[in-house]
Nucleic acid binder design. Structure first.
Lengths: 329, 329
DNA sequence: TCCAGAAACTTGAACGATCCAATCCTGCCT
DNA sequence: AGGCAGGATTGGATCGTTCAAGTTTCTGGA
């Protein structure tokens, strides 16, 4: 087995001091070109890699970012997280960071995990997916000056922290306009109960688009918890009550339920979902698609901004979704 | 800001030496009960957490396990990875390890990433999902004595390494028997071309179950690349050629295609998929379900066995799948 | 030629944990 | 009371890196 290659090995090989090697790695500009080259050659020849633990001990920085992986709930929307995580890993890697996973069953435990990860591993930052009104997690992190970004706006807007989000209202508005353009007038909406920021936002997009086109949205919407069965139930209700010719849904789960409700009854009704999940692609459901790779990349951008110097709070990012057209609309 | 709590702080607080604190953490049995309690109290009172970087420097162990996260391919089967990763994170956590993500676009890059992760972060082990004949990755890792487990059998069986897998043949056999019990006799199979270990295995299960029941499987199967469109094409072919009353598929993607093919033609044909993906649940497709949480847990078990002492190669684990019954069969 | 000042490079110390070897108790037996 | 065995505790060295401070080399102007 070959000897372990440390900064001292490289220094000896290039006939310079350890510190010079360190400088080549961390502040190349203060080393003379010729020396720098010699050190670089030694690094390549020996296959030297800086030991992260030793570096971390001195600098207190782990170059590790934590992200939470949830138990796939109804599984459909879970794949959004999947794609987001992949993007996160890829972009973080390019920026010299790695992604560490954690799980938690509730907020209290999640906060306990923060403490553990920070104390034991000295994590540099957290990425939170989805926040709710008065989220205790963001408060805890902010109180301790732990860098973090949320994918999802802080809906209560109490304290400003860096965030990245996709403009849900713009997505449902786009969906509604697509249906209006196709000649639809009775365009219904199936969404979530009042009080969830995301849900309210998505409904607002649909409502505003209808009003703008001179269509009265009153009575054309229904609200329920997320789920296929729920979507089916509400769609049946809508078919009887207002006989819509199209429906925009706040999620693919709801849209899938709606599809099942119209099958056999009136297959002409158009349906548009939200999230462009694999299920949507599989069954040919038109759906609002979030740019998850971009979102992840912007999260990393914001974090590296905070971590590598910028003291000012970075500007939030709001990305535009697009419509993945398939054969249900 | 409070002073940083180190092992020395705890020692002072409990009026013992650093070593005693270390012993309480790493070899509690050699410390007197009374002292141990006093140290524990100090640890709790101060909220002390052992610094992983310092520990790692001395021990060379990072308590980090790497797992790869793929770009969701056709998205349907991607969610299998999602669920597996969640299980992995949960079990690893319980065993005192953390999961680090990485990505790679091809084997060569993946191996380069191994080198980086090992050199820089001193990763303790790798979890590989899926292997192929003559996989260069397992060879590289084995050559360097890096601990790893694969989720998926080594189909070429060249060198033995720890693995966990789900008995695919048992799954398709169970599916076939379920159909036989329901009175079906012409039970077709749609799978993947010869040469993929997983695909061959799943087909063998179906074939053997039919033979066992005295049914000749000849001509009843078709092979293609994975995908919904492909599944639909082959199912149409089967309907014309052999008019099966039921079909077992090697994946939910293929099964979904099959479902689309029979819709309108002969909705009585039973269909069973494989993987129990969210899509299957969504459209009511009966599917063979892999115990992914268990699989992840067993992977961690095998790894901790290797990492924490056992020098003998641990016994591979073969788990039994179950049939998630829905209304397509 | 000489010297100030900058640039380039070197040396010693520190980060926080564990390992090793030596020392100190404690209780028990004679 | 003295000796001894065994376990409990202690101090010092160490892992590989970066920081802070020190020393040498180079450059240009008088």
């Amino acid at each position: 087995m070959a000897e372990k290659v440390t900064i001292a090995t490289v220094a000896r090989h290039a006939r310079v001091s350890r510190q010079t090697v360190s400088n080549v790695l961390n502040s190349p500009h203060i080393v003379r070109q010729e020396t720098r080259q010699r050190v670089q050659d030694a690094i390549n020849a020996l296959g030297y890699r800086a030991n992260q633990a030793a570096r971390q001990m001195r600098t207190g920085r782990s170059r590790l970012i934590a992200a939470r992986i949830d138990p796939t709930r109804d599984g459909i929307n879970g794949s959004v997280l999947d794609r987001f995580l992949h993007g996160l890993t890829e972009t973080a890697d390019a920026a010299g960071y790695r992604v560490l996973l954690y799980t938690a069953t509730d907020d209290e435990r999640e906060i306990a995990t923060y403490g553990d990860l920070l104390g034991t591993y000295e994590l540099d930052a957290f990425v939170l997916v989805g926040t709710k009104y008065g989220d205790p997690r963001t408060e805890w992190l902010a109180d301790r000056d732990v860098p973090f970004v949320t994918f999802g706006r802080p809906w209560d807007a109490l304290d400003a922290h860096p965030w990245v989000d996709v403009d849900g209202a713009a997505g449902t508005a786009q969906a509604a306009r697509h249906l209006l353009d196709a000649g639809h007038r009775r365009i219904a909406f199936i969404g979530w109960p009042d009080g969830s920021g995301v849900g309210d936002d998505r409904r607002a997009g649909w409502r505003d688009a209808l009003r703008e086109a001179g269509v009265d949205p009153t009575g054309l919407h229904r609200e329920t918890e997320d789920g296929i069965a729920e979507g089916e139930r509400l769609m049946r209700d809508l078919l009887v009550a207002v006989a819509p010719s199209a429906v925009v849904c706040a999620s693919d789960s709801l849209a899938l339920g709606a599809l099942q409700a119209i099958r056999g009854v009136d297959p002409q009704v158009s349906v548009i979902g939200f999230d462009d999940t694999p299920v949507a692609a599989a069954v040919g459901l038109t759906s609002v698609s979030q740019p998850l790779g971009d979102a992840a990349a912007r999260c990393v951008d914001l974090l590296t901004g905070v971590l590598d110097g910028d003291h000012e709070t970075p500007t939030p990012v709001l990305l535009q979704p697009s419509l993945a057209l398939r054969h249900t609309a």
